[in-house]
Design a protein around this nucleic acid. Sequence first.
DNA 1: CAACCATTCAATAAAATTCTTGAATAGTTG
DNA 2: CAACTATTCAAGAATTTTATTGAATGGTTG
Lengths: 223, 223
Amino acid sequence: MKTAARKFKDTVYAELSKTAKALGNPHRMEIIDLLAQGPFTVETIARYTGMTIANTSQHLQVLKNAQLVAISRKGNYIYYQLTGENVYAAWTSLRELGMAHNTAVKKAIDHYRKGYHNGDAVTAEELLDKVQAGDVIVLDVRPEDEYHRGHIHRAISIPLDQLQERIRELSKKQEIVAYCRGSLCMLVEEAVTLLTQQGYKARKFDDGYKDWALRGYPTAMTM
Amino acid sequence: MKTAARKFKDTVYAELSKTAKALGNPHRMEIIDLLAQGPFTVETIARYTGMTIANTSQHLQVLKNAQLVAISRKGNYIYYQLTGENVYAAWTSLRELGMAHNTAVKKAIDHYRKGYHNGDAVTAEELLDKVQAGDVIVLDVRPEDEYHRGHIHRAISIPLDQLQERIRELSKKQEIVAYCRGSLCMLVEEAVTLLTQQGYKARKFDDGYKDWALRGYPTAMTM
DNA sequence: CAACCATTCAATAAAATTCTTGAATAGTTG
DNA sequence: CAACTATTCAAGAATTTTATTGAATGGTTG
């Protein structure tokens, strides 16, 4: 026979664990990570994560039931988005925890980064100084729509898949700092490698847009 | 055929989700919550959570594999403890997230708190002022060993199950502020009700010891 | 080093999660 | 309002997670 206190705890922990359980799946983690950038349609999320539409939808339902994402309609499409900043905060602290304690994660990241031999990353403070001094080209290599929804102040947009053909738009004399989504987004590594190989002075900022914005550093949006 | 980028992501998200998965179980959440107070033996944890020893051990293995807890031996016993502050931080942000978005949690807590009709809680700042002014009795109602391992500066220890028999040690003239482990610990509600019924001027501080300590507010330990 | 004790392991059954497939649904647009 | 289309649902098989039981382990103590 259970006491009232026991029942209370059972209820609370059962409910709280639902939130953690909703986050406790690789695909859903990736979805959260993506949605931190802004709203996306099911189809986009599916393509990005390499899942079938039906499966993606199912995972999105799980996240929706856990109140981690919400929907809004626009034309024929349904856009999914995080329900609040605290969702991103929780995901961040889980990511930090994982990256601090999980050697497999550390190894995977190190290994992947080593594949490119780009130098050290620019810190956020450093980049802020450079932006304010105006002596740097800040390059956003994410897909264009993500750039439009919000980017680092004065950044220019050249999505990675257009970089080769549009590389002439950049100057070889000025320092270039490239960024993408965040610490797990490797677009920036490819970009910096490409630029360096062709004689540009390129470095990376690997915190990404979201963390920049959360620091309260200057951002802008188009449209 | 998967690209290198896809494989990298699969690895990273799979590993990161293991951490979240380890947290995504009611029993394990309760264990983390308890271990935030300090190290405990398997037997204590089992008794506290109402599980069998074997089952508790199994859950502890899961947490250990996820690097969320570590063990240390003392005599015949094995003590489990959190591997670091960031484990508590992640658990806190999940709890905050759950409490913000999950109506069932909110309802359970409200309902349980309503059962007692104690007034509003004292805030941490308020309590700090009172402690420094010295015009308050701070009462720690947790089990005695938790008190010894760390408590609010100048607090006295009367575990809840001894409160009735030792109530005379307290003064009816001075204000009493009781606390226990944290926002999910309801010992404090019982204590304040008991005290109020018998004519003591009692209020509750429901952030608990851990959050007090994390703010850097003054603490002490015995032995 | 033998006895003891806390803890873990192993095996199993029950329950929950996951992915796939193909059909159903519900907005939107002409 | 009919046709279209993005998204969801439903069913089922495969896998994983969980609790229980009873036996095994391995460190400590006399």
